[in-house]
Amino acid sequence: MYNFQYHKPDSLDAAVTAIAGAEDGKIVAGGMTLLPTMKQRLAAPTDLVDLSAIPDLKGIGLDGDTLVIGAMTTHAEVAHSDIVKGHTPALAGLAEGIGDPQVRNRGTIGGSIANNDPTADYPAAVLGLNATVRTTKREIAADDFFEGLFTTALEEDELIVSVAFPKPAKAAYVKFPNPASRYAMVGVLVALTDDHVRVAITGAGQDGVFRASEMEAALSADFSPQSIEEMALPAESLNADIHGSAEYRSHLVTVMAKRAVAAATG
C-alpha cells in the first residue's frame, strides 16, 4: 500500500472540506473494498478521509413510513435492527447475507452503494425498493443514482448522508452467491408497492445493477412465479466471466426472480 495523508473529520462540513482540498482524495467508510484495493496498489489516493467519527451519518430510524438508514450504518447493524426487520425484513436479510461476519461488522450501506460494485447486494435493494439517496447536496432517486460499473451520480465532493426506503407491501431478495467469494453471481430483489412491481438485478448486468422491465410488467399484472416462468433476459446484455457464461446468468436471473417472488408471497 502506498502511503497517504489520513483525515478523520468529526463533521460533514469538515469532511467535505478535506475531500475538496485533497489532490486525489478517497473517502473511506468501512474500508472493506477500498483497503484491499489499496493493498493491491490498484488505488493510490493521496488522502484518505475517514467518515467514522461523524455522528450525522449513523443510525437507523423511521420518518413516518419511510425507513432512513445513515450512510455509516454497518451491514450487521442493519441485519439485526428491529426497526429494519419491522419495516422491510428483506432488507435485513440482504444485509445478513453480505460477505462474512467480519465484513458485516465493518462494511457500510453508504460505502457499498457509493462503490457500486456490479456484484454487490445493496445496489439491488436501493434500486428495487425505490429508495432515495440523501447526500450533502441533494436527494437522488435510485433510478438516477447508479450510472454504470463502479459509477454513480455522486460528485467528487458529495457525500451520502443516508438512504431512505419507502415501505413496500411485499419484498424479497434472493441471490446465488459465488461459492468462493460470496459475491452475487446473480441477485434479484423483487418489491411490490400498491399495484406496481420493481425487479432489480445485481451481479448479472454489464453496466451493474439494472431493472428488468419485462418482468416488472408481467409481475405487475400477476404477482406469481408462474408469470415469469418462460421469461429469460437476452444473454447478450449480461456478464460473462470465469465464474459463469452470460447464458448461465440469464438462466439464474429467471430462477432467482421466481424464488424471490415465491419468498415475497410466501
Binding site: 461476519p101 467480519q102 461488522n105
Partner: peptide, 22 residues
C-alpha cells in the same frame, strides 16, 4: 486479502479482520 480470517481480533467487542483495518 481479508478472506482467510486468521487475523480476526475484536474491536470494540465485535470481530473484524485486522489485516483490513488501518
Amino acid at each position: 486479502t481479508s478472506q482467510c480470517g486468521a487475523c480476526v481480533v475484536h474491536v470494540n467487542g465485535r470481530s473484524v479482520k485486522s489485516c483490513t483495518v488501518l
